[in-house]
C-alpha cells in the first residue's frame, strides 16, 4: 500500500484530511445547522425561559428564579398546592398503565401473527399497521362517538351500573386510557412480534420436558427471549402516552389534566409562557429519564441519549 500519513483510503478512494473534512462539513453541515437552529436552540430557549417569570400582559420578564419549578413541586404562593404534583404523577402513572395494558393486549396478538402462515401472516401484520397510518385525531374523536351518551357501549355499561344512562363514558380518565391503549397498541405489537418470530421453541419444549407447567414455561422459557421486544414496546407506548395532548384534550375532563394539557393551557389561555416552559421541561425530563432507563436496561448505545 502506498498510503502515507497524509491520506486515508475511504471506500476505495484516497482522500487528504482536508478533502475529508470538507466533505464531512458539506454533507452533515446543513442538516445539523437546521437541527441546531430549530430543534436544540428552541429547547435551550425553553430551559432559559422556564427560569423567568410572567411579566405584565403575559410578557416574559423578571429576574432569574426557580419559582416556576417550586410551583410545579407544590409550593405555591398560598401554601402547598397539590395541583401540579398530581398532574405530573397522573401523567406518569397513565403512561405506565397504558404501556402495561398495551403489552398485555399486544402479547397474544403478536403470538397470533407469528402463528399465521404465508400470505395470512402479511395480512395479519398489515391489519396492525393500517391503524397506525390513520390520523390519530380521527381515531381519537371516534371514541367520543363510541363512548357518548347514546352509544351502545354506554347502554351496556349502564345495564351493569357502570355508567349513568344519560351520561357518556367520557370525559374522564377511563376514556383517555381506553383510547390511548387503542391508539398505541400497534407500537407494542410490532416489536413484540419481531421478538416472537426469532423465538427458539426448543427451549420452551425443554422446560416442559423437565416438568415445567405452562405458566413457568412461559415465564422462564419465553419471557427472557422476547424481553427486547417487550422493553421496546413498553417505551414506544409510554413516551407518546405520557406526553399526549390531543387524547386528554378531547376525552379527558377538567379534573384529569395531564402534562400535555397543562403546557397548552399555559401557552394558550393562561398565557404564562415561563411557567408553561417549566412544565414542558418536566415532560422533556421524564421522557429522557425513561429513555435513559431503557438504554441502561438493554445496553443499546444508540438510544442512550443522556
Amino acid at each position: 500500500m502506498r498510503a502515507n500519513l497524509q491520506t486515508a483510503v475511504h471506500h476505495g478512494e484516497t482522500l487528504t484530511p482536508r478533502a475529508y473534512s470538507l466533505r464531512t462539513g458539506a454533507s452533515v453541515g446543513p442538516g445539523l445547522a437546521w437541527l441546531g437552529a430549530l430543534f436544540l436552540g428552541p429547547l435551550a430557549l425553553i430551559a432559559l425561559i422556564s427560569l423567568l417569570s410572567r411579566g405584565e400582559y403575559g410578557t416574559v420578564g423578571g429576574a432569574w428564579t426557580f419559582e416556576n419549578y417550586r410551583r410545579l413541586a407544590g409550593f405555591g404562593l398560598l401554601g402547598f398546592d397539590s395541583l401540579y404534583p398530581l398532574i405530573i404523577a397522573r401523567s406518569v402513572l397513565l403512561g405506565l398503565t397504558t404501556a402495561m395494558l398495551c403489552l398485555s393486549a399486544g402479547l397474544p396478538l403478536a403470538f397470533f401473527i407469528a402463528s399465521c402462515k404465508g400470505r395470512y401472516k402479511n395480512l395479519a401484520l398489515t391489519l396492525v399497521v393500517v391503524p397506525l397510518w390513520t390520523n390519530l385525531l380521527i381515531r381519537t374523536y371516534a371514541w367520543q362517538m363510541l363512548l357518548g351518551p347514546e352509544s351502545s357501549l354506554t347502554q351496556v355499561a349502564a345495564l351493569f351500573g357502570l355508567a349513568e344512562a344519560d351520561e357518556g363514558l367520557y370525559p374522564g380518565l377511563f376514556a383517555v386510557s381506553l383510547c390511548m391503549v387503542c391508539d398505541f397498541l400497534p407500537f407494542a405489537v410490532l416489536p413484540i412480534y419481531a421478538s416472537v418470530e426469532k423465538l427458539n421453541w426448543s427451549l420452551v419444549e425443554a422446560a416442559m420436558d423437565l416438568g415445567a407447567n405452562r405458566v413457568s414455561a412461559f415465564r422462564h422459557g419465553i419471557v427472557p427471549q422476547i424481553k427486547p421486544g417487550l422493553t421496546a414496546g413498553f417505551i414506544l407506548v409510554f413516551l407518546p402516552a405520557m406526553g399526549q395532548f390531543v387524547i386528554p384534550d378531547l376525552l379527558g375532563g377538567a379534573k384529569t389534566m395531564l402534562l400535555g394539557n397543562a403546557i397548552q393551557q399555559q401557552f394558550g389561555a393562561a398565557s404564562d409562557w415561563p411557567f408553561g416552559s417549566a412544565v414542558a421541561m418536566v415532560s422533556l425530563l421524564v421522557a429522557m429519564l425513561a429513555l435513559w432507563l431503557m438504554a441502561r436496561h438493554t445496553g443499546d448505545d444508540e438510544l442512550n441519549i443522556l
Binding site: V28, L32, L35, L38, F39, L40, G41, P42, L43, L45, I46, I49, L239, P240, M242, G243, Q244, F245, L259, G260, I263, Q264, F267, W273, G276, S277, A280, S283, L284, A287, M288, L291, E302, L303, N304, I305
Partner: peptide, 26 residues
Amino acid sequence: VSRILYLPVFIPDIVMAVSLLLLYSL
C-alpha cells in the same frame, strides 16, 4: 449527533411545538 438524532423522534411533540412557538415569537 447520532444520539441527538433520536431525540426529536421520542420527545413529546407538544414540547417541540411550544419551543418553536417561543422561538418564532422571539
